[in-house]
Amino acid sequence: MDQLRKDARYREEMDGDFSTVDDDHNFLWMIENGSIGKAKGILTQKEEKEFIKDTFCKE
């Protein structure tokens, strides 16, 4: 848990740099013994908009 606190504090100091968000996700995923949902990269802005539309904007 100490490593998690250190990592979270480090990320806060990066001030909005999400260039390693997939690695950050997978770090937390590993700590929680994840079995599904491992990040395989970072979506482009266009891909993210499509994902949000397809996932959360169902009619």
Rank of each mutant, 00 (worst) to 15 (best):
G41E: 01
K6T: 01
F27A: 03
W29C: 08
I42M: 08
K46E: 15
N26G: 09
K46A: 13
D2Q: 12
M1F: 08
G41D: 05
H25S: 06
K49F: 11
E48D: 14
M1A: 15
E32G: 10
K6G: 04
G41W: 10
R9G: 03
K53F: 13
L28V: 15
Q3M: 12
F27P: 05
E47S: 09
L43T: 13
N33K: 15
Q45L: 07
S19G: 07
D23W: 09
E48G: 04
D2S: 15
F56S: 11
M14Y: 03
E50K: 15
L28R: 10
Y10P: 03
G41F: 04
N26E: 08
H25W: 14
Q45H: 13
T55I: 06
G37H: 08
R11V: 02
I42C: 02
M1G: 12
D7L: 13
N26A: 00
E13D: 06
T20Y: 05
I52E: 13
K6F: 07
M1S: 14
K6C: 00
D17I: 03
D54V: 09
V21S: 11
T20R: 09
D15F: 10
F51W: 15
E12R: 15
E12Y: 12
Y10K: 10
S19P: 03
E59G: 10
A39L: 01
K38F: 08
D23Y: 12
T55W: 00
E59Q: 10
L28K: 05
E47Y: 08
L28S: 05
D22M: 09
T55A: 09
K40R: 07
Y10N: 06
T55V: 06
E32W: 13
V21D: 02
D22K: 00
K6M: 09
F27Y: 02
E12K: 13
G37K: 07
G37F: 05
R11N: 04
N26W: 12
K58F: 08
M30V: 01
K58H: 07
E48P: 01
D54Q: 08
I31W: 10
K58D: 02
V21P: 08
D15P: 02
R5Y: 05
S35P: 00
G16W: 11
A8E: 03
M1Y: 04
T20P: 01
K38P: 02
R9S: 12
W29S: 10
A39N: 06
T55L: 02
V21I: 07
K58P: 06
E47V: 06
D2I: 03
W29P: 06
G41N: 06
L43G: 12
A39F: 03
K38R: 07
K49L: 07
F27R: 01
S35G: 00
F56I: 04
R11E: 01
K53G: 02
F56E: 05
I36D: 11
E50I: 06
G34P: 00
K40D: 05
D7W: 04
E48Y: 12
E13N: 10
A39Q: 06
T44E: 12
K46C: 10
I36Q: 13
G16K: 07
D54E: 09
T44Q: 13
S19Y: 09
I42D: 07
L4H: 01
W29N: 01
G16S: 04
T44D: 11
M1R: 08
F18E: 09
R11P: 01
F56G: 09
L28T: 13
D24H: 01
E32Y: 11
